[in-house]
């Protein structure tokens, strides 16, 4: 598509970004309603769960009135949103801990794991992609393809089990789970243990955090690594055919330099594309990974809540998952606009 050049690119860009952010609002409203509705469709009675079966009828009536559960569903929904806006996500039925409090601990854990998974995925994905392209049709290329194919085809929960038993139970070189050795304590500031440990000035703790991060983030990285590798390889091959690269090589420039200069910049696009496609996979993978590694994040939280029917948590978790998804998608779109200006006119 050839498009007219923007008269004022910066203005155009800003407009695009603002528009993209505004679009998110109705989606979030819709999502909040859907998640509210979902939870109300789950069989079982939250009141009984909350008060116990021995609750007296008058207590149940009173509780329902107090919680507004005797109101029509749309009224309940509006109340729920009102409370949400005040930062009140409700209270867990089983632990009686405010859901917002749980979120403040669990959200950073999940974000940290996903962040490191992305780093691993990007580094190895791009690295393998470049290597495969340079050594096209050699054993290395085939090997990289095989690794990518295996990665994308392997059940993530199975991979987690294998790695735990191999590296933690048998070889005992990496911890089997959790975010930090139990004997170590971290001063809670941001909730991101890597940052918090550095804020404490404790490199030993930082190193411990990293060791705990390796297996879970690696497992999670398999959701993005193969895609990044394949796209990098494809775009590398494409670029390497281009005249200017050939010219550059013909001029005797060193291959490494050529790659750095021309092709790596092009690799950014596939990376973002793959991440965009796999946000859903990352969040789903987080559930399986966090369970396997007793990682105290959102995924473990959601799954546990489902198994005991802790309605307020289920509701919050579904909504939060959706919100994270929406925001990540939005970020991806916006970064596209920065990298490839054509996108923003679509």
């Amino acid at each position: 598509m050839s498009l007219p050049a923007a008269r004022d690119p910066i203005l155009k860009m800003t407009t695009y970004i603002i528009r993209r952010i505004l679009v998110v609002i109705p989606v979030i409203i819709g999502v909040s309603f859907l998640s509210f509705f979902f939870v109300h469709m789950i069989p079982g009675d939250p009141v009984t769960t909350m008060l116990g079966v021995r609750a007296r009828p008058q207590d149940i009536v009173q509780y329902k009135a107090q919680m507004g559960l005797d109101q029509p569903i749309y009224v309940q929904y509006i109340r729920y949103i009102e409370q949400l806006l005040k930062g009140n996500w409700g209270t867990s039925i089983f632990t009686r801990v405010p859901v917002a409090k749980d979120i403040s601990y669990r959200l950073p854990a999940t974000i940290e794991a996903i962040f490191f998974a992305l780093i691993i995925g990007i580094v190895f994905g791009i690295g393998m992609g470049i290597l495969a392209a340079l050594k096209r049709n050699t054993l290395i290329d085939t090997g990289a393809s095989l690794v990518a194919l295996t990665g994308v085809s392997m059940p993530i929960f199975w991979l987690a089990l294998i790695l735990i038993y191999l590296f933690a139970v048998n070889l005992k070189v990496l911890p089997p789970g959790s975010r930090l050795d139990a004997e170590l304590n971290i001063k809670y500031v941001t909730g991101f243990y890597t940052i918090d440990s550095l804020l404490m000035g404790r490199l030993d703790i930082f190193w411990n955090v990293i060791k705990h991060m390796i297996l879970p983030s690696f497992v999670l990285s398999t959701t993005v690594m193969p895609g990044i590798m394949r796209l990098t390889r494809a775009s590398m091959l494409e670029v390497m055919q281009k005249d200017y690269i050939r010219t550059a090589r013909a001029k005797g420039l060193r291959m490494g330099k050529v790659i750095m200069k021309h092709t790596l910049r092009n690799a950014l696009l596939p990376v973002i594309t793959v991440i965009g496609l796999e946000i859903s996979g990352l969040l789903g993978g987080a559930i399986l990974t966090e369970n396997a590694f007793s990682w105290t994040g959102m995924g473990q939280w959601f799954y546990n809540a489902i198994t005991v029917r802790d309605y307020p948590i289920i509701q919050a978790a579904i909504l939060l998952n959706a919100i994270i998804f929406i925001f990540m998608t939005m970020l991806i779109d916006i970064s596209y606009a920065f990298i490839d200006p054509r996108i923003r006119y679509q």
């Binding site: 735990i164 139970v169 089997p176 789970g177 369970n291 590694f293 105290t296």
Partner: peptide, 16 residues
């Protein structure tokens, strides 16, 4: 706290 039974067992065997 390790809610997942198999994760807890793995940690036990790993010695943590």
């Amino acid at each position: 706290s390790i809610p997942d039974n198999s994760a807890r067992f793995a940690e036990f065997q790993a010695g943590t």
